[in-house]
Amino acid sequence: MTAAVTGARPDVPTRLAADDLDLLLLIRHFELALLDMFGRGELHGTTHTCLGQEYVPVALRPLLTDGDHVFSNHRGHGHYLARFADPHGLLAEVMGRQGAVCHGVGGSQHILRDRYLSTGVQGESVPVAAGVALHLNRAEPGHLALVHLGDGTWGEGAVYEGLNMAALWGLPLLLVVEHNGIAQSTPTDAQLAGSIEGRARAFGVDHTLVTATDTALVRAALAPVLRRVREESRPAVVELRTHRVGPHSKGDDSRTPEEIAYAKAHDWYARYAEAYPEQFAAHDERQRAYLAEVVREVAGRPASVWEEADRG
């Protein structure tokens, strides 16, 4: 079965409650702060920001419980912040400062906290999440395992092995695909034959296409899918057509100016600012200032410590 939710015209976003808007802006300013610090040479290593895609974990947030497992990927800052609202711990992790969620060992793309896990190898988490879902199905029915993945991840065989077992065994596994049309530098039409819908359908798995980028509409589209996964204990694929507003990593955007302009035209940030200027300005300024304070405070912390007893 495939359901499509196309949503309202992109220039009329739904007015959001304060907590949703704050979370969207928290993620936006976290990512902007990271790029800013990279630009100044203050960060070591690499990062992948989710600029333009912040609404995905924000839409999911009230639909998930603490008992659900969330598996994230290389582009996971938004997923983490939506779950824990902990910019200090995440920034300390990226910077290798005390208070880091994983003592600076995992960095931007390897984080484990409670039932949240991210790792940096594409597709690897799908069978792992199926294993978690196998346990949930027996021990904690009603909970689910959610995997965030991109359109590029569908090139990995692990996705199909995991989806096959989840469908065969009736497991509460939800794949949330952030289809931003580009895998690092490779456009989707150069790396994905057929469609994600066709691939889900081949396993007898429900597929829902969501083209809206409006947090409220996306949430409304996702709610019945999560409910079905929980109640009927079977996997589902949700494909969100989204727009990567920033580079893949930092300063490595290979798209044409027109393509980048197209992504920016779909950015929820500018559209929301235009539709609700007063509400937006107040929240935006508050989160910008909050992140500046987080950066100042975390940057002043001493280096993180990896104790011998924590080395596996």
């Binding site: 690897e124 294993g131 196998l134 065994w169």
Partner: peptide, 27 residues
Amino acid sequence: DRVLSTPLSEGGIVGVAGGLALAGQRA
């Protein structure tokens, strides 16, 4: 319920086992 014949998916099977271990089980 605990001894499962699987599809031909060695990577997937070891991944499922990793997920079980992560969830406090053993495999």
